[in-house]
Simulated scan of single mutants.
Amino acid sequence: MSFEIISQARCFNGTQFVYRHASRETGTPMRLAVYVPPQAGDAKVPVVWFLSGLTCTEENFTVKAGAQRVASELGLILVAPDTSPRGENVPDDPEGAYDFGLGAGFYVDATEAPWARNYRMRSYLERELPALVAESLPADMSRQGIMGHSMGGHGALTIALRDPERFKAVSAFAPIVSPMNCPWGEKALSHYIGPDRASWRDYDACALIEDGARLPGILVDQGTADGFLDSQLKPQLLEAACAKAGQPLTLRRQDGYDHSYFFIATFIEDHLRWHAERLGAE
């Protein structure tokens, strides 16, 4: 096996793993959490990726979302990677801010110094890690879904829009729908990618849709009491882009819910069933 097991625990008749491996793309050790359901003992099963938000590691979704019970019922492998490279020699925000650097890889391949050496989360998730999952886990790679939260919602949408053949199901919780048009995204993209805003379009879901990318459907849940709603998330931009392009979108505004994992835990079952239906899971 290509993964080193850090921990494992029996969970709803399946197994929750935390793995570590040396990444070629980031040049660092990378951790990921993987839930393997009981059905994987008999045959390969579909895979759903979960990309987390700013400040998170592989642990947040795994511990807080309550996803394993439903994944066990439906027969879904859940893969939750870390959100950035980490290590003593990995550069961080010089001011120690939470929205850039460690824990804030934004799922891009950085091109600017000093970030370009390690911050290659796009290639890590699009090429390196899927190959390792296919090699090491009982995963049916012809049936993949992807979802994420906040920065990870941005990652899930953009990765899927760039590779619609790979992903049969896509969803997001409170995603950053247009990093080109919010402070978090402008800071990250200008530092990681440089000042040419045209080069940012590959990392903006609304821009990708405007430029012709399409998916069979997108599910988004957004809490109306989210403190980042108006300044950073702006779901109305995705709504408008999808409407103009004829891109199917199910956008559910959930009254009174905030940006936390309490919100995710409330609606995770809906999302997993959305994925299972489209992946032909049990």
Rank of each mutant, 00 (worst) to 15 (best):
L157I: 03
S150H: 06
D196H: 12
M141Y: 05
G96T: 09
S136I: 10
M147T: 14
R143T: 01
V90Y: 03
G87R: 08
A169V: 05
A207Q: 14
A80G: 04
M180H: 11
M147S: 03
G148W: 01
Y119S: 12
P81E: 11
L208R: 08
P138M: 09
A207F: 05
R127A: 12
I193C: 03
M180L: 13
S190M: 01
S150Y: 01
L102F: 10
W115M: 08
D140I: 10
G155Q: 06
N89T: 14
W200A: 08
A131E: 15
M147Q: 00
R166A: 04
G155M: 00
S171K: 00
G103F: 03
A113V: 12
A207K: 06
Y203S: 10
A104R: 01
E73A: 07
N118V: 09
S142A: 15
R127K: 13
D140H: 10
M147G: 08
P183W: 12
P195W: 04
S84W: 03
G148T: 07
H149V: 07
C206N: 03
S84N: 05
A139K: 10
Y203F: 13
Q144H: 07
M121S: 09
D92N: 15
Y203R: 06
R122D: 14
G194H: 01
A113S: 14
A139P: 05
L78T: 04
G75M: 08
L74K: 09
G75P: 02
G105P: 07
A97C: 09
L137W: 04
T158L: 00
P85W: 02
P114E: 10
G152C: 10
G152Y: 09
S171I: 10
R143N: 07
L76P: 02
M141S: 06
Q144R: 06
P195A: 15
Y203A: 11
R143W: 01
A160E: 06
F106M: 09
D92A: 14
D109F: 02
G194R: 07
E112D: 06
D140K: 06
P91M: 12
D140W: 02
A169P: 01
A172F: 02
I159Q: 05
I176Q: 15
D196M: 07
A160H: 04
Q144E: 14
S142Q: 14
V79H: 03
C182R: 05
P85T: 03
G87E: 03
R127C: 12
A198P: 00
D93Y: 10
S171E: 03
Y98E: 13
R143M: 07
K187Y: 13
A134C: 05
D202E: 14
I77F: 02
P114G: 11
S171N: 07
L78S: 03
E128L: 09
D140G: 08
P183N: 09
P91I: 00
I209L: 07
G194N: 07
I77Q: 06
L129P: 02
S178T: 15
I77C: 07
S150M: 09
A198S: 15
T111P: 02
R86H: 12
A198T: 13
L76V: 09
R166T: 10
F173S: 00
